[in-house]
């Protein structure tokens, strides 16, 4: 009996924790579908007539629409290039240059010690000189520092966890280095690499400061979302909520796509 009670207790506690953790997000999502008068009522409303007006407002608003598009381009390109360069580099570091690996990893990590402002100001000057200030290309370029370094930093341990004997067994079957990487190291390390990519994606998707300083017309979504909150007294809560949902959605879609890709990759080798 005591066991049962404690089991129930644990479940209740877990349920409470989940509600506390997810509550704000849920409230935001609900708010995105409410009209303003349903949001500002003194008594919170759970039952209301849902509306897509907020989303319509956002997607009709060219600033937000462009922000979304810019974010999508900048983030996907910088994560993609970061993965294409960072993952093979990490494999080489993990397998063939272990003695340099720790130094490289620390260097990469040290890039993240620097306050972003310290990077941003010199970059403004350089970018103005080069004529790439306020361009998507310029933003992608700075983000590449983050994406390549983060991918390497997280992928080296992922590849180190791949048993070396597996790669050797593949070599015994006649696979060359590229084939071993592609058919064995990558699929076996895939679950950890997946985490690394998601983390990197979220890192740059949420990036505000560099985007704020290095771009003006070509602002990304976080910049636009931040500017909505400073609209004055008449806060359009519904629109903000909808913007938040739009901001959160792409990482989720991205995770879904990546999972699908990995699942197909992780099948059985040549047919």
């Amino acid at each position: 009996m005591g066991k049962l009670i404690s089991a129930i207790g644990v479940r209740v506690l877990l349920a409470v924790l989940i509600v506390v953790a997810l509550g704000p997000i849920l409230w935001t999502v609900l708010g995105a579908f409410k009209e303003l008068r349903d949001i500002v009522t003194p008594v919170p409303k759970l039952v209301f007539e849902p509306t897509l007006d907020n989303f319509a407002t956002i997607l009709r608003n060219p600033t937000i629409r462009d922000g979304l598009l810019h974010s999508a381009i900048v983030v996907s390109v910088s994560v993609l290039i970061g993965a294409l360069l960072g993952i093979p580099a990490a494999h080489v570091l993990a397998r063939h240059a272990r003695r340099y690996g720790d130094d490289v990893q620390f260097f990469v990590l040290s890039l993240r010690f620097m306050p972003p402002v310290a990077i941003a100001i010199p970059f403004i000057v350089i970018y103005l000189d080069l004529g790439i200030y306020d361009t998507l290309f310029g933003l992608i370029l700075v983000y590449l520092i983050t994406t390549i370094s983060t991918v390497i930093w997280l992928a080296v341990p992922a590849f180190e966890r791949v048993p070396q004997n597996i790669e050797e067994a593949a070599a015994m079957e006649g696979c060359g280095p590229a084939e071993i990487f592609w058919r064995f190291s990558l699929p076996v390390a895939a679950p950890s690499l997946f985490g690394a990519l998601v983390f990197t994606f979220v890192l740059v998707w949420n990036e505000l400061l560099l985007a704020l300083t290095l771009a003006a017309q070509n602002a990304t979504l976080p910049v636009v979302a931040a500017s909505i909150t400073s609209l004055g007294k008449e806060v359009p809560w519904g629109v903000i909520n909808a913007a938040t949902v739009v901001l959160v959605l792409p990482p989720l879609v991205f995770i879904g796509l990546l999972m699908g890709l990995l699942n197909t990759m992780v099948r059985s080798g040549p047919k």
Binding site: P163, E168, A169, F184, V188
Partner: peptide, 14 residues
């Protein structure tokens, strides 16, 4: 030549 390892070295994803 074919080799058998102490740790088996099977391909975990197949």
């Amino acid at each position: 030549v074919a080799m058998v390892f102490q740790s088996y070295a099977l391909y975990p994803h197949m």
